[in-house]
Computed example of a mutant assay.
Amino acid sequence: MVLPRLEHVGIVVGDLEAAKAFFVELGLEVEGEMTVEGRAVDRIVGLDGVRSDMAMMRTPDGHGKLELIRYRRPAGPGGDPEAPSNAPGLRHVLFEVADIEDVLARLQPHGAELVGELVQYEESFKLCYVRGPEGIIVELAERIG
């Protein structure tokens, strides 16, 4: 079986506006926003009484998308925004950037903090993990050489 493509990755957030601002600063574009609710939504996500706001973010090339979701109801369990990089579950998303130091500087006012260090990996990439809003870990990669 061959998958046609990966459509998007969904990330649940508490502060949709802060998450959108962070990813816009990173270079993603808001493709669309909407609020969803109703029996069909309840059945899809396996919850009752769902009402959620969503923002679809896309990379400038149009090939990558993140769906940011804020549930108005029902209330969900709290997550661990300080979970380490090796905790089970979806742990990070990676974006290739042209100037990693510039991107880091632009993301800091949006709450981004280095998880470890900015490191040159062999002769191929400069890499780092940053923790953004809601504890989301974003890996940044600048191709070198």
Rank of each mutant, 00 (worst) to 15 (best):
P133C: 10
L140C: 03
A141M: 15
Q108V: 09
P88C: 01
G78M: 12
F22W: 07
V24I: 15
E122V: 11
D61M: 08
S52G: 09
G79R: 13
T59C: 04
S52P: 04
Y129P: 03
S85P: 12
R72K: 13
F125Y: 15
E117T: 15
R39A: 12
E139D: 07
L127K: 09
D80G: 00
V30A: 00
L66E: 01
A112L: 01
P133L: 05
R91F: 10
L6F: 10
G49C: 05
H63A: 12
G135D: 05
V130K: 00
V41H: 00
M54L: 15
P81G: 04
G89Y: 00
D80A: 03
H8L: 02
E117Q: 15
D80C: 02
L68I: 00
R143A: 14
L90K: 11
E7T: 10
F23Y: 03
V41E: 01
D42A: 00
R91N: 15
G62K: 11
L26N: 06
P77V: 14
G27K: 03
S52R: 12
P4F: 10
E117W: 09
G116I: 12
E101N: 14
A105F: 09
E25T: 15
L6W: 06
K20D: 13
G14V: 09
D99L: 13
P109Q: 05
G10R: 00
G135M: 07
G111H: 02
G27A: 10
L114E: 10
G135N: 04
V45F: 03
M56S: 02
V12N: 03
P109M: 07
D48W: 01
R72T: 11
E134G: 04
A83N: 09
E113M: 13
E122N: 12
A40C: 10
E17I: 09
E139H: 07
V24G: 07
L47Y: 03
L107F: 04
L107V: 08
E96Y: 15
H8V: 02
E117H: 14
V93R: 04
E31Q: 13
A75V: 06
R51S: 05
P109Y: 04
R106K: 10
P84D: 15
M1D: 14
V115C: 09
G132K: 01
V130W: 02
G79M: 10
E142N: 11
R106W: 06
V103H: 06
A105P: 06
H8G: 05
E122A: 13
G89P: 02
G116C: 12
P60F: 03
E37I: 00
Y121I: 15
P60N: 08
S85R: 13
V9Y: 09
L47A: 06
A21L: 06
G14W: 07
G64E: 10
